[in-house]
Write a protein that binds this DNA or RNA. Structure first.
Lengths: 228, 228
DNA sequence: GTCTATATACTGATAGAC
DNA sequence: GTCTATCAGTATATAGAC
């Protein structure tokens, strides 16, 4: 049975490589032309395959888009995580907030992927997928956890100056929504008038966490568990 | 020439009626199946026309979608405007904020229309439209003004309690972004974990405009120009 | 595992008859 | 002003040969 085993391992790793090639091609297409322009034909052409062959490695277009979305989400988090080490809580919050919006604005396709990959292409997406869970594949349970966690952790470092905020979790959600909203409005092709987003974010953070609670008092911010 | 004039008037009003019929059908389709499912063929079928005839009244699918988007935006504003008469500024702000999000969540298709109608269908939208402005039609210059105006007006009523916010306009933009973000995250089909939006909005408004600036002091809010 | 060929179902838009 | 017919594409997905 050793031979069968080895063959199985080999085919698995080959399959993994092919999936990677497919995802690479798909990513390039989305970056160049947007999620809406992603199609099995284009991917196949890009890697010199026939469209039919892609279905060996992915269930369909949607699964590919979702995979790219997860990737993008991890990239976004990776961008923010180092900022969690900034010692001063206020600085840290500012840095994370601006970095979040900057990422969204600088990588609109990826941001689109993160938040839109599912619903795309309404009519087809509404057909139920009757497939009863493809055989074999371990099927990761991965759904992206919400970005508000990172924000909530940072916010809890700001609680002191004046018995401030009741519920850090709620405020973190609001903050996240605000940042998401700024990105979406900036990317929206709608002619809605908008100010530059930098000052908007600063104004919001200031009004939320500014040094206004007791005028004259020093900033005095706790900085819990921030290494280095 | 009187006859020609009358004929012209008649044909104009007929054309207007037909446009309305087309928009009605389009609106119904979008409400039922989403913007992505809107197509010229479906509209034509719904009103018993041939697809070709629609091009007499509209330049194409995009123009129809944009018209629906403008409509939706006006409906949203119409929903909010009466709330601008609430005398107490804080109450007014709360009412508007919650109404805004409620509208977005209760009418996801319309909200989609308002903010997405343009970019839809990437590849086709990227083709430049070479048509040199269809003859005759007066061509309204309407682009929706930004919803932040309404918010800014209300915010300026909150400025008093403690020399509060530096720039009302910026804060209004942030507030708008936050509300938009809440709607978008609520509508996103992504499995991002979220709290119910009501408390999130309240927490945000509280932290922004709450009665925390000087503990013990009465609310003391100006209420400028709010009739009745 | 990969291909060709095809089934199926769209799409927006236009020419030209009536 | 409206239609039929059609151009010229798009797409997902699958059957069956090799």
């Amino acid at each position: 049975m050793a031979i069968a085993e080895r063959k199985d391992r080999e085919s698995r790793s080959r399959a993994h490589d092919q999936r990677e090639r497919i995802l690479d091609a798909a990513r390039r297409i989305v970056m160049r032309e947007g999620l809406a322009a992603l199609s099995m034909r284009k991917i196949a052409e890009a890697i010199g395959y026939s469209p039919a062959s892609l279905y060996i490695y992915f269930e369909g277009r949607d699964e590919i888009a979702e995979a790219l979305g997860r990737e993008g989400y991890e990239q976004l988090l990776a961008q923010l995580k180092p900022l969690a080490n900034i010692a001063d809580a206020r600085e840290r919050l500012h840095a994370i907030a601006h970095a979040y919006v900057a990422y969204g604005c600088d990588h609109p396709r990826t941001y689109e992927l993160i938040f839109m990959a599912h619903k795309e292409r309404g009519p087809r997406a509404m057909r139920q997928r009757a497939l009863p869970d493809a055989a074999g594949a371990p099927e990761e349970p991965a759904k992206p956890a919400c970005g508000a966690q990172l924000l909530a952790a940072t916010l809890s470092g700001l609680e002191q100056p004046g018995g401030m905020h009741a519920d850090c979790g709620l405020l973190a959600q609001a903050l996240w929504a605000m940042l998401h909203g700024v990105v979406m409005l900036t990317l929206a092709p709608n002619g809605f008038e908008r100010a530059a987003h930098g000052p908007v974010i600063d104004a919001a953070l200031d009004a939320w966490f500014g040094i206004r609670a007791a005028p004259g008092e020093p900033p005095a911010v706790r900085t819990p568990g921030a290494g280095s």
